[in-house]
Design a protein around this nucleic acid. Structure first.
Length: 202
DNA sequence: AAGGTGCCCAACCGCGTCCTT
DNA sequence: AAAGGACGCGGTTGGGCACCT
């Protein structure tokens, strides 16, 4: 299944990564740092493109990557974030410590997509501030104008790691919890909190 | 036991954005 | 200001595995 494509003078190795390749890439990134993936690709001696190296590092080799199944809290957060943001996987993943955008995206497509649509049908009117719709609250046009790209994700990751898990025991000023509980133990979304979370500059 | 089918997820691709020259 | 290269993101693909029949 692994194949090599002739791209001018050099070929690029593709397909699943081998443990040896992982080791090489890991040590190379630890030595030279993240950032210049074309350079890392060259230095490592791996016949992998910069893109492939970046993806492998980001999704599997990076420290603090969390593997394994999603907790119910994570699932719920993904559903709510998706409701709010649409397919902004990197942003959603930024709220889940140790989870990658690819993982969140895969999880959504395989598990939650169905779950959400079935909830859509069963959801009582009273739950949540907004009805289940396919349209995210935040439009694509608004995304970048609010400076969410990059620094927002880093920041959120940092404080989430500090507060351990979802910020349920959060300190003042952090954007979570997005979720609270009704007496019957159903989870509800706090729209006010979400608004300030995603429009921090307003 | 063998073949068929569906699901999961790692990896690739294309495109938009950012950065450098 | 324009062009080219690199990066990051979301969509898509396809191999491998588990579960039927």
């Amino acid at each position: 299944m692994e194949h090599k494509r002739a791209e001018g003078k050099s070929y690029v190795k593709r397909g699943l990564w081998q443990p040896e390749e992982d080791m090489i890439l890991k040590s190379c990134v630890e030595t030279h740092g993240e950032g210049n993936w074309a350079d890392i690709s060259r230095r490592s001696g791996l016949k992998r493109g910069g893109k492939s190296c970046r993806l492998r590092w980001k999704n599997y080799l990076r420290p603090n990557i969390k593997r394994g199944s999603m907790s119910p809290q994570e699932q719920d957060l993904i559903i709510r974030m998706h409701k709010l943001l649409g397919n902004r996987w990197s942003l959603i993943a930024g709220r889940l410590p140790g989870r990658t955008d690819n993982e969140v995206k895969n999880y959504w497509n395989t598990h939650l997509n169905k779950k959400s649509s079935s909830r859509k049908q069963n959801a009582p009117e009273s739950i949540g501030a907004t009805p289940f719709t396919d349209k995210p609250v935040m439009s694509t046009e608004l995304r970048r104008s609010h400076g969410e790209e990059g620094e927002g994700e880093e920041e959120s990751n940092t404080w989430m790691e500090e507060t351990n898990h979802f910020g349920y025991d959060v300190h003042v000023g952090s954007p979570l919890p997005l979720i609270s509980h009704y007496p019957d133990n159903t989870l509800v979304f706090d729209p006010c909190f979400a608004f300030t979370d995603f429009f921090p500059l307003l």
